[in-house]
Design a protein around this nucleic acid. Structure first.
Length: 268
DNA sequence: ATGGTGGTGATACCA
């Protein structure tokens, strides 16, 4: 046993589907789960009207925002100091889909909202699908050049494994689980030797979903889930991870997001 | 095969 206590860090990631529409459940999440750092996607708010007060009241005094009007938008709220925040625009289209920070211990946290890709999995008739594929290509290029310990989190909008969806057979041609998307996820993973923390802690074929459609009459009963949200770590960072859970109860709270939060705890 | 729900912002569009 080391005489020096290990430093723990609890990081959460949550597609909130409008942070202003979810003030109550965000507050409940900060209270009940108390992460050190919360990464949000789909904040749907401009930076100047981001609800900073809620976060500051709970001790999240360090904020890195990348918002836009109506759609997309990402944010990192932290109890520990954050440095060198940056915002990548891989597609140079002005969409707010990334914000990254560096912590004092050198860890980088990269928070991403990958394009959903529309309905039709064919880029010749659906430009949104093409945008999604191109976004992954840019992430692969970026990823292959990374040389610092990094935690990559967010809504990747792809459920890559057969056991990452409620029915592989019924979703094989549905955007988020098509072969071309799964192949891109595989290339992205290999581009930095990323460790998929979800499957590190819940190996296949264990049940692991992060999203359930609003359209189900009883989402919990039908359990037609997909694992669209991910936390991937550089190998040396993954080695410090001690737990990883999907906070599934948040999907049952009043006026929920359709995504659950992911939480990984590290001991450095 | 279809439509089912929800956020934004005021009409369709996006998820």
């Amino acid at each position: 046993m080391s005489t020096k206590a290990k430093q723990t860090l609890k990081v959460a990631s949550w597609n909130i589907n409008s942070v202003r529409a979810r003030l109550d459940i965000v507050e409940r999440f900060l209270t009940e789960y108390a992460p050190d750092i919360l990464c949000l996607q789909e904040t749907k708010v401009m930076n100047d009207v981001f609800p900073e007060g809620l976060f500051r009241r709970h001790g999240y005094n360090h904020l890195a925002l990348h918002g836009q009007r109506m759609h997309h938008g990402v944010a990192i709220a932290s109890k520990v100091p954050i440095r060198d925040d940056d915002r990548l625009d891989w597609q140079a289209n002005g969409e707010a889909r990334h914000v990254g920070v560096r912590l004092d211990n050198g860890l980088r946290i990269e928070n991403v909202y990958v394009p959903a890709g529309g309905e039709e999995p064919d880029r010749t008739i659906n430009p949104k699908f093409g945008q999604k594929l191109d976004f992954f290509e840019r992430m692969i290029d970026w990823s292959s050049k990374l040389d610092v310990p990094t935690l990559l989190v967010g809504d990747f909008n792809v459920a890559p494994l057969e056991c990452d969806v409620w029915s592989h057979k019924q979703l094989i041609n549905v955007v988020s689980h098509t072969a071309i998307e799964c192949a891109l996820m595989d290339r992205l993973q290999k581009a930095h030797d990323w460790v998929d923390l979800g499957r590190h802690f819940v190996p296949p074929p264990g049940r692991l979903f992060t999203w359930w459609s609003y359209r189900a009459h009883d989402w919990a009963k039908s359990d037609r889930g997909r694992r669209l949200d991910h936390m991937w770590a550089s190998p040396e960072v993954a080695a410090k991870a001690v737990s990883h859970v999907v906070a599934e109860p948040v999907r049952s709270w009043a006026r929920p997001s359709d995504h659950a939060a992911l939480i990984t705890e590290f001991a450095f």
